[in-house]
Design a protein around this nucleic acid. Structure first.
Length: 319
DNA sequence: TAGCCGTGGTG
DNA sequence: TCACCAAGGCT
């Protein structure tokens, strides 16, 4: 997507959508996408707990950590338990990191639990227990990258940031770039496009960010996009091009069976369920190949997910 | 920067 | 059935 028509005048489709006189915010939308997408969002947005007014910045941050590479349906129950147990960053920071790992359950990527715990500690130490508002301060927290920093600043504090997740990238790839899928890795061109499409008005920008994500999650999905339900189908560059199939390098496919990741998962599952230190012999039972098993366990220890004790016993980390 | 890091639902 | 996919971050 080298050339993007973000500076074109409003399309006829956009003009049709704005039946009455367009507001100042809509008039600033050179693409004609803001109005239809945010209007669709107002009607179809899911009622998710981290979107409720009482969720707070901490609730938003917890949800963003959990939602990294994990579907909403699996996050919901864990999120509720997590917020009930640790309603403030200080509450989590006061716990052993292993308790965060245990409460993480089977969400996957348990290092996120460790990082969320570390982020809570950093918030307590550096920000007096309040989730910081500044993008740069958010970005400096453990486990917070470009996406999460922008998401928290936008969703929790209503700021104007380009929020570029896999959903938004796919929506932009189709609607603007005319491709079925975005590139494997986020490109500078995508960031530039996201900034260009961001409404000037702060509140509208925050709504736009949430709306484009929701559109990608509910309608403009990876496998079976439901274009008949899409508010910008008539403007979609990919559709207008005849919905061409993805070109270029195959999207990376990652195997799981037989990998260290699977072994780590099995080892950690045992430790999560255990209420007392686990003897080596119990861990040995989860995988029959000793070299890989040892490598996986060493990796967990190196990552801080597992604490080795004397006598060949192991547990989730207390510190 | 490409590879690694979990888990489970699904078309 | 089995790849693909899901609100990424880190090195």
């Amino acid at each position: 997507m080298t050339s993007t028509p973000v500076t074109t005048t409003a399309t006829s489709a956009a003009a049709e959508t704005a039946s009455a006189a367009p507001s100042a915010a809509e008039a600033a939308d050179g693409t004609g996408l803001h109005g239809p997408v945010t209007a669709w969002f107002d009607e179809h947005a899911r009622d998710l707990p981290w979107r409720r007014p009482d969720a707070g910045a901490w609730g938003v941050m917890v949800s963003e950590f959990m939602l990294q590479q994990t579907p909403v349906s699996r996050v919901l129950p864990v999120y509720e338990q997590w917020l009930a147990r640790w309603p403030r960053p200080a509450d989590l920071a006061a716990e052993a990191p292993g308790e965060a790992v245990r409460a993480w359950g089977r969400l996957g990527y348990p290092r996120r639990a460790l990082r969320l715990h570390a982020a809570a500690s950093a918030i307590q130490e550096r920000h007096g227990g309040d989730v910081p508002r500044e993008h740069a301060q958010l970005l400096a927290l453990p486990g917070v990258g470009e996406y999460t920093a922008a998401a928290v600043a936008s969703f929790a504090y209503g700021q104007r940031h380009a929020v570029l997740d896999t959903n938004v990238r796919r929506v932009f790839a189709r609607a603007v770039a005319g491709r079925q899928y975005p590139p494997n890795a986020t490109t500078a061109a995508e960031r530039k496009l996201a900034r260009a499409l961001l409404p000037q008005d702060e509140a509208l920008a925050a709504r736009w960010a949430a709306a484009t994500m929701e559109l990608g999650a509910l309608v403009c999905t990876a496998r079976g996009p439901e274009c008949v339900r899409c508010p910008i189908a008539t403007q979609c560059a990919w559709r207008l091009a005849g919905s061409p199939a993805h070109e270029g390098p195959a999207r990376r496919t990652q195997t799981y069976a037989g990998t260290d990741r699977q072994v780590r998962g099995k080892l950690l599952a045992v430790l999560r369920e255990a209420v007392s230190p686990v003897p080596q012999v119990v861990l040995d039972a989860v995988w029959d190949e000793p070299v890989q098993r040892a490598r996986a366990l060493d990796g967990l220890v190196a990552d801080g997910l597992v604490e080795p004790l004397s006598g060949g016993r192991y547990r989730l980390p207390l510190t």
